[in-house]
Each structure stands twice: as C-alpha cells, then as structure tokens.
Design a protein around this nucleic acid. Structure first.
Lengths: 277, 277
DNA sequence: CGTACGGTTGACGACTCTCAAAACTTGTGG
DNA sequence: CCACAAGTTTTGAGAGTCGTCAACCGTACG
C-alpha cells in the first residue's frame, strides 16, 4: 500500500493547508469512502479499504470563500449540507454565477486541468463539506475502477448540466428561464427528500439573474408575475409551487392588460385583488 | 493482463458495432496510445504497453452523424482531423450548438454518466477520428494513473470551456460574442499550427448564431459590421483578422450614422469604398 | 436610529428578434 | 455543361423583449 494512502488511514491528525479554510473549525465529523459514494449517488464500493478510509469534513460560514480562482488545486469538496454558489470573476458587480451546488454535489473539478481553480466557490449558508484530497483520490482510483468510473460519471453529469444551461441561457425567453430555474430547483429538492412544492431560495435575485443571464429587475418582475398568475406563491425567498405542470411547460405568461380585461377571463382571479392601492 | 486488453493488442479484426459508423469505411490508419496522448496534449505515457496498444480510426463524411442522443455509450472519439459540431435536440430548426470540436478534442464524454449519449456529434467536413472504446480506456487507466489524470484533465478542460461559454452567452452583447468567437477560433487555429490571421469558417451563420445564443441575422449583420470597420476582412466564410487586439477587446462597435460622419474620423477608411453600388 | 443591502415597481429606450425579400452559392439531374 | 432547386447569406423594416436608470420600501445589523 502506498505511503500516501497509509497516512490517510489514520483519521486524527490531518493538517489543513487550504488558505480559505484556515479560520474554519474542522468538524469532528468524518465520512468513510462508502459514505462518500452514497452521497454522490454512485455505486458503493465493494473494495476492501472502503470502510477504513476516512475523509475529514470542514465547516463553512455564510459568505466564506471555499476556494477562489488561481489558488493551487489540491482538494475536491463534496457538499454534505448547505448551499453554495460557484462563480467566475468574483469582481463584485459583474460576477458570473455558474451553479448553485447543494447536497451531494462535487466541487472543484475545474481545478484539475490547470492545477489551480478557475472558479470561485462561496457559501450561501452554513455548510458542511467533505474534503477529498485529489492525490488520495488518485491512489484509490488505481485500486478501484468502480470509483474511477464513478468520478468520470460525476464529471460527465456536470458536463451534461452545463450543456443544458447553455441551451437555457442561449435560447429561452426570460420567463422560460425563470420557470426552468424554479422547476429544476424543485426537482433537486425532491431528489434530496425535501418538499418539491415549498422551499426557500438561498440566493439573491441578483444571483439568480446572473445564473440565468438576465438582469435582476427582470427576474424580480417575472417572479412577481408568476405569483400574480397563481402558478407559484412567492413571499420574498419563500416559494410555493401551485401548478408545477404549467410551470414546467410555460412558454409565455399571459400579458396583463392594465386597462382592459381586468375582470374578464383570468383563471386565478384571487391574486388580482388590490393591484396597486 | 486482462482478456479485454489482450484482445485489443491485436490490431486487425475489430468489429464495429456503432450504428452511425456502419456506412463509413474504416481507415487503414491506427494510432498508438502515445499518439493519442500527444494528440490530446497530455503527458505521453511511460507505461510499458503504450506503444503496443493501437486504436482504430474511422472516416466520417460531411453531414454524417457520429453519435446521437440516446444511443448506447461505448466509445470516446478523438478528432484526428476535420471539423465537427455537437448539438442538443437535433430537431432540424431548433438545434442548440454546444461546441465545434476540432483536432485533438475529445468527443462523447457526456455519455459516461447515463451510459448513453446526451448530445449529437455531426461532421462539418471530412473527418478522421480515433475511436477509444471506454472499457478499454478503463483497463488502461487501472495500470496507468498518468493516463487517468490525463482523462480527468481533459474533462476538466471541457468543463472550464463550458463555464466560459456560459459567461459569454449570459453576459456579453451580441458584438462581444461574435468578436469573442472569432478571437477564440483564431487562438485554436494558432495552437494547431495554422494561421491565426486567415482561416475559413466551417460552420454556417445559423450554427454560429445558435452557439452564441443569437439569431443568424444578427450574426450576419455583426460580421458585416466588423468587415466595414476594418477589424476583419470577410468574404463569405473566409476570415482575415486585421486587428486582433481591437477585436479581442471590442466592447461596442461605433455606430454607422448613415447620414453623418461618413468621411470623418474612422481609422480604416479603405473599407468604406463603394458602400452598396 | 441610521446605513447598507435586498427587493419591487415604473418609465423609457435600445438591442436584438422576427418577418420578408432578394442575391448568392452549392449541388443535382437531365 | 447547363438549368433548376435547395440552402446560405445579406439587408431592410418594424416590433417586442429586456436592460438601464431611478425611486421607494422593507429588513437586518451595528
């Protein structure tokens, strides 16, 4: 067995060299390789050392940077709990949101190619992350082709998701993009065992807008319109999806003609009370 | 040595099961693992079997489908020569272009996750592709962690590229997108040893438009405007880049006020001769 | 209690899409 | 080898979606 792996089999002392993590207290939690596989949704390893190997967790506070562009790449992270945003060009006002990783998602794979991260990962809430040193992962991969395929699979999934986002941002209307965003979020919550009807957004309107290639005002307006139409009920960041089918298949929201048709043929008329004051 | 690998060490008889490839004549060309690594730009393998292992090539004609959405995933392809487009939703008019792979690019990685391809790959020209059966790759990976890291690296690079495209499509103006497209294409040609000043586009305006999240008319108009401004010279699909710096840093093309300023302060005035006829 | 930040809403404008027509290119079959 | 058909590209006119600018409100936090 390699020296690297042998060292890693003893849980207690593991020195943190991550710059951004310095201030974070290391959690007492650790995860076995089996836990990690379960978390990522890849087939659990029948390998002999799957149970004895443990990975340390790290606690992150809201707003804290997990890694940022240019930092040397050493570690992959798996979200154990909490919500995160990944961005390009952290420069305050023109950050480009790439994704909103949550439980089970793998972070940092973009760092593999150039040996340093090419994006930023920032916590949107208190987070608990599993740290997977890349060199350790490589060592295990040599012994288990199942894990190897698993990692390829996860990266493939990321690629598929980015492909879909390219279509969303490149060819859908603003309303379709927001509807897609809410639908996709609902599906992810559902997959994690949470309610797919009621959930809280963990990101700002600005962040949603950047993610979807829109302005924050447009996002705000469309969310308000969806609320008025009755498809979803919105209260700040609390979302309740009332008609997931129509939301999923939405193409164009019926125009609100201010001067006409106010009392006429709108299905959910209870949401039209007291237009302005 | 595994049975799989042993079979693969004998070059001659390799049965093609790819549906789309049936009609294509198999080239007499083969590539060794060393060739493949060189082609992809990853460190050549010092492994013992790197030279004896060979991969068959396949010839593809323009317009031919290399793989399509839903097909069972078995094979990765490396572009040896030629130009390709990858798309989502091949449905005639609303296809979404994902990328324009060329020499050295790896195709098909999106198929790993669900065991079937989730995109389409279609030849834009005569192409010569190296076929890498995924199971063979896994076998080699077990023996060579360098190759393994290499594959991770390639997928990481793809991810980085998709991230950049998300920013391009999500936050740049139409002019910036087209300028970025030409600049990036120029850089890729340069990296392959071709001229970065003069090259031929292998794709239609419609395909460029879809790739950039624009309408084909907008792309056509902007290319025409770039030509008028003198930054590039355009003749159909032939592109000559005259001012790569200004093209790279272009934010907004100066408006052409038809009635005013025609003779005034435009730098490249030679391109203004004979406006329409 | 003031400041900062997030969110909402309105007015306006422009960037880009759609529709349309025509010129040009490419391929095909007689 | 030419004629016709189909696809590509260009260009114009008009419209609409969405971005920008701005004001205002609510909430959190020091």
């Amino acid at each position: 067995m390699s020296k690297l792996l042998k060292n890693y089999l003893s849980p207690p002392a593991f020195s943190f060299r991550e710059n951004a993590i310095k201030k974070a207290r290391a959690s007492q939690l650790t995860s076995s390789l089996v836990d990690v596989c379960k978390l990522m949704g890849i087939p659990p390893l029948p390998a002999p050392l799957a149970d004895s190997l443990t990975f340390n967790h790290v606690q992150i506070k809201p707003g804290q940077v997990i890694y940022s562009t240019g930092q040397p790449f050493t570690t992959l992270y798996i979200v154990y709990s909490g919500f995160i945003k990944t961005t390009l060009d952290a420069a305050a006002e023109d950050e480009q949101i790439l994704d909103f990783p949550m439980k089970g998602d793998l972070l940092g794979t973009d760092g593999i190619h150039r040996k340093h991260y090419t994006s930023n990962a920032i916590a949107l809430s208190h987070c608990n992350l599993v740290m997977i040193p890349f060199d350790v992962l490589m060592e295990i991969g040599k012994r288990s082709s199942e894990l190897e395929v698993g990692i390829y699979s996860i990266m493939s999934r990321e690629l598929i998701h980015k492909q879909r986002m390219l279509k969303v941002v490149g060819s859908l209307s603003a309303e379709e993009r927001v509807a897609h965003f809410l639908t996709a979020l609902s599906a992810r919550f559902s997959a994690l065992g949470y309610s797919d009807k009621e959930f809280k957004l963990r990101m700002t309107r600005r962040e949603i807008a950047s993610y979807l290639g829109l302005s924050l005002e447009t996002v705000s307006r469309i969310i308000a319109a969806l609320d008025r139409s009755g498809l979803v009920a919105v209260d700040g960041r609390s979302i309740t999806i009332n008609d997931s089918y129509r939301l999923k298949t939405l193409r164009r929201l019926p125009q609100v003609n201010v001067s006409k048709n106010v009392f006429a043929n709108n299905s959910h008329n209870e949401s039209y009370t007291a237009p302005v004051a």
